[in-house]
């Protein structure tokens, strides 16, 4: 297997990925636009490697390993999960190193110049909601990590592929028939996962940050009508702090940053069971 190094733009960052997994590189070229790749670069924020398993195991059950700056932070995964391993590994690298931003475990989508930050635990439905909204007039900034700039509180785009799981994959294939998906990986710790390329309109505006306008805590519930309920700002601030990767590192500055955002943003809980209804409700919020 011939090793190659690609330089991939991830929003404001550049990652140098070295790997002999040709098929993973092919998939990445489908999921990211051509101008996000560079053949060489003088600088990379993250140096990562996707390598085969070691020892006799690599002949019996091929594995993939992900390293950041030569350090292995994850257990090896089956080689057919190499693509999601790369995406999860890059999330880990950003969340662990990019402390010039306040990083929240949240999706972030923008409409009319303002960002809806969608925090939530795994399974709450934030990625599915974001995936739906970006095909109904919203711009993707991120599906997993909202990067909030410290000096002005604006959200900085990553516009990386959206991580979808299990039934959300087929749901999105029906909701957005023209969307580009990776080959699904089965039997991962999250079930079946697939990555959905961000729409071209989102990718074209990768350099446009935007201020938060709403903090919306989504919860998908089967059959539930779309419903936005006002949520306490103090409670929302505490909850978003808990959903932050590095709030504690920012200390008082982090609190002041979030307090300023909440002072200028609506704060809601959002229950939804149908993406069309959800999009209508969120569009009405953006138009208000």
């Amino acid at each position: 297997m011939r090793e190659q190094t690609i330089f991939l733009r991830l929003g404001p960052f550049t990652a140098a990925l070295t790997t002999p997994f040709d098929k993973v590189v092919e998939e990445l070229r489908r999921l990211y636009p051509a101008n996000f790749f560079q053949h060489q670069s003088d600088f990379a924020d993250f140096h990562v490697q996707l390598l085969p398993g070691k020892g006799m195991r690599r002949h019996l059950r091929p594995q993939a390993r992900f390293l950041i700056d030569g350090q292995e932070h994850f257990k090896p995964l089956p080689a057919d999960q190499a693509l999601p391993l790369v995406e999860w590994g890059l999330n880990y690298a950003i969340a662990g190193l990019a402390h010039n931003y306040l990083i929240v475990h949240a999706a972030a989508v923008e409409k009319n110049g303002r960002v809806a930050i969608l925090p939530g635990a795994p399974g709450a439905g934030k990625s599915t909601l974001a995936a739906g909204l970006i095909h109904r007039g919203w711009r993707l900034l991120s599906d997993e990590l909202a990067l909030i700039r410290r000096h002005d509180g604006k959200v900085v785009p990553l516009a990386r592929p959206v991580n979808l799981k299990n039934q959300s994959i087929d749901l999105m294939r029906r909701f957005a028939p023209s969307a580009v998906f990776s080959t699904p990986a089965h039997d991962t710790v999250k079930g079946t996962v697939a990555l959905m390329r961000a729409p071209e309109a989102s990718l074209a505006r990768i350099d446009e940050s935007a201020p938060p306008g709403w903090i919306v805590f989504p919860q998908w519930r089967q059959g539930a009508p779309a419903r936005l309920d006002n949520f306490s700002r103090p409670a929302g601030l505490v909850e978003i702090a808990h959903n932050s990767m590095n709030y504690s590192l920012h200390g008082e500055a982090g609190f002041e940053l979030l307090a300023g955002i909440f002072a200028k943003s609506g704060c809601y809980r959002f229950t939804y069971g149908d993406l069309n209804e959800a999009a209508s409700a969120m569009n009405a919020l953006a138009a208000a």
């Binding site: 306490s232 700002r233 103090p234 409670a235 601030l237 505490v238 702090a241 709030y247 504690s248 200390g251 008082e252 609190f255 002041e256 307090a259 909440f262 002072a263």
Partner: peptide
């Protein structure tokens, strides 16, 4: 302590402990 008051609630950051509290 650093804080914000909203109607009948407060959110307070304790600079010594790093904890953030919600009072109602």
């Amino acid at each position: 302590a650093r804080w914000r008051l909203w109607e009948d609630e407060a959110v307070i950051y304790n600079g010594r402990s790093g904890d953030t509290h919600h009072l109602a």
